[in-house]
């Protein structure tokens, strides 16, 4: 590993720890008083939304294909993990381990589904693929409404509350780092090339289908992780939560933040998922405003607020300490 990279990763790690420290400071020292549980909930939802939006960004921003069924994959993660933890409810597995099991089950089952859907569906492109993703998510929703094991149309409840905000933060960081490393490697390069021109990509020796299915599967897998977190935070859910509306909400977050930008996804997801909670009293006006902002952004900044810009802690530090060497810094 090059030395400057080592330093960079170390600095970023410290940055991540610092944010965690801030989180602990606000949530665990009683500084927020009675509000703390409410805030903790908002933070948990924001964290899992970051996973949802970033993973959707893999498909949409980096691979350049719409998916309007991401909430469907989320529900697969939510239900599969819940079924397993419900079955293990009477065992003496400690909560943390059970949480890890839930995440892994959600990830694996959803990845398999993503793979199975991706192989045939990714032969289609653009609007047609978007429609198939909607159709798949709807089929999943209907199926979960009918299977007895998923509640048979009623609320599936009694799921253990395992999604502690600290765990969720760690999981979020791991997920985002994995996706980031994936994109910043030969795999991500190939995926971006496919987005730009799939014919040129295959003429450059890229197996387009392979890389597309791979990306779609990874994207689905992380939606599954988010689903598992969601289920074990809410402790009860119905399939209709994971509707087409939910999927399109995530898609708008991706686009608003900036398709092809991790920074955009992270900020977009945190702001847009926390905002509704904070402005609860103005719920309908808020959504009205939101849609207007969305249209305005599309008209005046079609690439989203952050475009493909990435925040870099190193760059900020260099600026602050005046050590700007002017080198193009990508990581």
């Amino acid at each position: 590993m090059p030395k400057n990279k080592k330093v960079e990763y170390l600095i970023n790690f410290v940055g991540i720890l610092a944010v965690f420290g801030i989180l602990v400071f606000f949530l665990d020292t009683g500084i927020l008083g009675k509000q703390v549980n409410y805030i903790r909930g908002i933070v948990t939802i924001a964290l899992l939304t970051i996973i949802m939006v970033t993973s959707l960004n893999l498909t949409t921003g980096f691979m350049g294909e719409f998916s309007l069924g991401h909430a469907g994959f989320m529900s697969i993660g939510a239900y599969s993990s819940s079924i397993v933890t419900l079955a293990l409810a009477d065992s003496n597995i400690p909560n943390m381990l059970l949480f890890i099991i839930a995440i892994i089950v959600g990830a694996v089952v959803t990845a398999i589904m993503g793979f199975l859907v991706g192989i045939p569906a990714l032969r289609l492109k653009g609007d047609y693929l978007a429609i198939v993703t909607v159709a798949v998510a709807e089929i999943v929703r209907v199926a979960f409404c009918n299977f007895a094991i998923t509640g048979g149309g009623k609320t599936l409840s009694g799921i253990k509350k395992l999604s502690d905000v600290h765990y969720v933060y760690v999981v979020m960081i791991i997920c985002v780092v994995i996706m980031y490393m994936f994109i910043r490697s030969r795999f991500g390069r190939a995926v971006k090339a496919i987005r730009e021109d799939y014919i040129a990509a295959s003429s450059s020796g890229i197996n387009v289908t392979n890389y597309k299915v791979m990306t779609f599967t990874i994207s689905a897998m992380f939606a599954g992780v988010a689903g598992a977190i969601y289920a074990h935070y809410m402790t009860a859910m119905i399939p209709n939560t994971f509707s087409f509306m939910k999927s399109s909400e995530y898609l708008t977050m991706v686009i608003l933040g900036g398709s092809g930008s991790f920074t955009g996804s992270i900020i977009g997801a945190s702001v847009l998922s926390a905002l509704p909670e904070l402005l609860r009293d103005f719920a309908s006006y808020r959504m009205l405003m939101y849609s207007v902002v969305l249209v305005l952004v599309m008209i005046f900044r079609p690439g989203g607020i952050f475009g493909t810009y990435e925040f870099s802690l190193i760059r900020v530090l260099k600026k602050v300490f005046g050590k700007n060497k002017g080198g193009a810094d990508n990581e």
Binding site: S185, R186, F187, R189, A190, K192, A193, E196, A200, G205
Partner: peptide, 24 residues
């Protein structure tokens, strides 16, 4: 048919991909 939004060097690197071995 270039990868328009990628950098010049990335355009070339994409074509090297088939000889790269490292795993995910």
């Amino acid at each position: 048919r270039l990868f328009k939004k990628l950098s010049v060097i990335e355009n070339v690197k994409v074509a090297f991909n088939k000889n790269m071995k490292y795993s995910m």
